[in-house]
Amino acid sequence: MVHAVIPLKRLLCGQAAFVNRISGPPDHVHRLEELGLRGGVRIEMFRPGSPCIIRMAGNKVCIRSDGLLEVLVQPAETLASP
């Protein structure tokens, strides 16, 4: 089953997803990409909310994006261990 693309903030605690795309001002998008958050990367929601904490390649990153920046993700098939 193919999951719909949803905003990062709708990801549930422990849910894994792949980054689909990041939209917003080019410089802000570039900044997130430099930090490793870019299309195709697998992430897992550790602490939902604003700001949220996501796990990315074994590390945790805290992110708060304002209305201008949107991280869209595609949830993975299974829920990762909480």
């Binding site: 802000h28 997130l32 930090l35 904490i53 590390n59 945790k60 805290c62 304002d66 920046l69």
Partner: peptide, 11 residues
């Protein structure tokens, strides 16, 4: 001015 996204790594 424009607020940049708040991103910090949790070591």
């Amino acid at each position: 001015g424009e607020t940049p996204p708040f991103v910090i790594e949790l070591p």
